[in-house]
Nucleic acid binder design. Sequence first.
DNA 1: CATGTTTCCTGACAGC
DNA 2: TGCTGTCAGGAAACAT
Length: 304
Amino acid sequence: MPELPEVETIANGVDVRVRGRTIISVWLSSKPEPFRSTPAELVKALTGSTIEHVRRVGKHIVVDLTRDAAATRRRSIAASRKAKPWRGQWLVHLGMTGSLLVCQPDEPTPKHTHAILQLDDAREVRFVDPRRFGRLSVLDLSTEATSKTGRRDSGVSAHDKGFIGPGQEPLDISADAFRALFRGRRTPIKSALLNQKLLHGVGNIYADESLFRAGIRPRRQAGRLTAKELERLRTSIQSVLREAITLGGSSVSDYVDASGEKGFFQLEHKVYLRTGESCLVCGTPIRRILVAGRGTHFCPHCQH
DNA sequence: CATGTTTCCTGACAGC
DNA sequence: TGCTGTCAGGAAACAT
């Protein structure tokens, strides 16, 4: 399932392939909608827009779009020369099984393809998602009313900067800010790590792998971890995520990058999906429990 | 507000 | 072989 390293890999792969291209036309599946915005809003924002940049924020892929005013409003050339270009963002959340692929138009369209953007060089960007937990949406950054409320929890900043995600970036966060996130929380540390409003980007795989590396049991109360443990956890999260990005992510389930290639970090997993197998450090069988309704894997000897 | 529970959805897989 | 049942999980909606 796509978490921070997988989303980063996909976003970078899509970026190098389509940056600067213009979207000529958009097709959306008419089947039950994996869309946050309405199909009409998506088509309106995407059609005729140029892709400035594709990047990752939390578990979202953010596609920065612009369109000159002439194309937007079909005014006279004189009027459009003065007008600011339209700006917007396409947000893609891959859910559990989503993928975003850059394809040649003659490649067969797989089942569960929900969106196809045709580019000006005839290639296509395709959103495929069998389980339909993924979501597509667009933001209009030109209208001043960008932030209906400027709510931080919507992931949209109040000052027209566009999508900033629901929480803090795990790769950047300072030791102080990290500690502050968990202060006073009685929820299990594993649940807190999965809460995207705290840290965004960490999911089930990397929560389990980070807790193993930090030597912390998943059910420990977040607010009762010592400063030393929290700092160990922060550096574990950062090193696990960075290693995983280097290896192109973890291919469990059906994850592939923008060109359909698998990642290799699943070969480095120490606990995730290793129930009953020997701990690679001490030999104790890895245990699986349920925390926050999620399968959770840990070594009862190495983690305290 | 904080935390726990349910829901969505389909492919994979077990058991008969 | 083919049917049925169970399970996985990110995040939003709902309940406590």
